[in-house]
Design a protein around this nucleic acid. Sequence first.
RNA 1: GUGGGUAUAGUCAAGUGGUCUAAGACACAGGAUUGUGGCUCCUGCAUUCAUGGGUUCAAAUCCCAUUACCCACC
Length: 372
Amino acid sequence: MDAVRFELIKNDEKTKASLGRLRTPHGLIETPVFMPVGTQATVKAMRPDQLKEIGAKIILSNTYHLYLRPGHEIVKAAGGLHKFMNWDGAILTDSGGFQVFSLGDLRKITEEGVSFRSHIDGSKHMFTPEKSMEVQNALGSDIMMAFDECPPYPAEREYVKRSLERTTRWLERCVKAHKNTEKQSLFGIMQGGMYKDLRKLSASQIVEFDLPGYAIGGLSVGEPKELMYEVMDYCVDYLPKNKPRYLMGVGSPDCLFEGVERGVDMFDCVLPTRVARNGLAMTSHGRISIKNAAYEKDFSKLDPECDCYTCTNYSRAYLRHLFKANEILSSMLLTNHNLYFLINLMERIRNSIKDGNFLELKREFYNKYGEF
RNA sequence: GUGGGUAUAGUCAAGUGGUCUAAGACACAGGAUUGUGGCUCCUGCAUUCAUGGGUUCAAAUCCCAUUACCCACC
C-alpha cells in the first residue's frame, strides 16, 4: 500500500482539468493544489500556524539545503522534518536534482551521480540516487521526489535524450534504495526538454515503475510561455490519469490556470514568496509593486477583494512604508497575502471545476488580472 | 570685531590646471524574479562643481570680490 494515494473525483467536461484527493500520512489534500516552498525547513517569513490559517495543506522542502545545513542526521535526530519545523501538514521534498541545474558550473554529472560544491562553504559533495533517498528518508517527507537531471534550455536533442535515459536509470535506483515505503511515497520525474517524442519516451519509461505520482520536470527553465504551455499539454497526456500529475516549479497565476486546464494536479513555486520579499503583491486586479511612489499616500486595501490578514488590517501606504524602511513585517505581510492569494485562487479553481464553470472563471480572471 | 578654514547631486563625499559632458556610497525613481545561493540583481539619477569677475590654449582645480557656514580669540 502506498503511503500517498490519489483519488480522481471529477473530470471537467470542456477541458482536461480534474478534481482529486490526495491522501497522505499528514492529511487529505484536495487537488489541484498549490504548494508553498519552504526550502530550509521554513516557508520564509511565515509561521506554520499562519500557513495553516491561510489554508496550506502541503509544503515543499529541499533535500539539498537540509543535507548541507543543518544536516539530515540532525533533522532525523530531531524526530523528522515535520517535528523539527513544527508542521503537521504534508511535506514534499525535492530530491536535490534541480540543484544540478541551478548550481551551474559547480556541478559534474556522471552515471553514478552528481558531484558539486556546497554554496555555503565550498566543500565537495556527491549526490547519487541512493544518497538522495537516504536523505529524504531521514527527513521523513510524505512525498519524496526521484533524483533527476534537469537539462537547461535550450539543450541539444542528443544531450536531452541521454540525460532523460540516465534519469530513468536513476529512478530505478531510487525505487530500490527507498526504505520507507509505508510512510513515504516516491514520485518519478519526466524529462525530455522541449522534444515531444522524448517526453513520450521519458513518460513511457517512468510509468513502468507504477509509482503513486509523477512530475513533469524541466519546464519553466527560461523557455517562452507559449512553448511551455504547448509542451505541458502533451506531457500531461503521457501520464496516467489515475495518478497525481505534478508540474514542478510553476506558479504564476496565469500558469496555474493554464496548467489546471491541461490536467495538472499539483504545483509548487517560489514566486509568491520570493516576489513578496521584493515588494510585489499579486492582487485580483493584477500585480502591484508596493514600493512605487504611487502608493505613498494610498490608504486603501492592498487588494480590495481579498480578506486575508494583511488586506483586512493594513493600507498600501503602510505596506510601502514597511518595505521602504526595510522592516521584517513587510516580508511577513506580503508573503502572507501572496500565498493566501494563490491558495484561495486554487480553491476557487476547484470550486469552478466542481460547478462546471472553470473556463468562465479563467476568462474572468484573465480579464481582471492579465498575465503575471 | 580679528584671525583661520570650508563651500561639488536629496545626503556623505572623491577629485588640487588638461583622459571631468565630475568616482563611489546612501537616498530617490523604475524594472526583474517560476522544483529559492535573494534585505538579491539590473537600469536611471550633476553639460556641472556657492555667486560674480579675472588669469590661462585649457579652471571644480590658480587669483580677486561677495555670500553662507564652521573653529579660535576678543
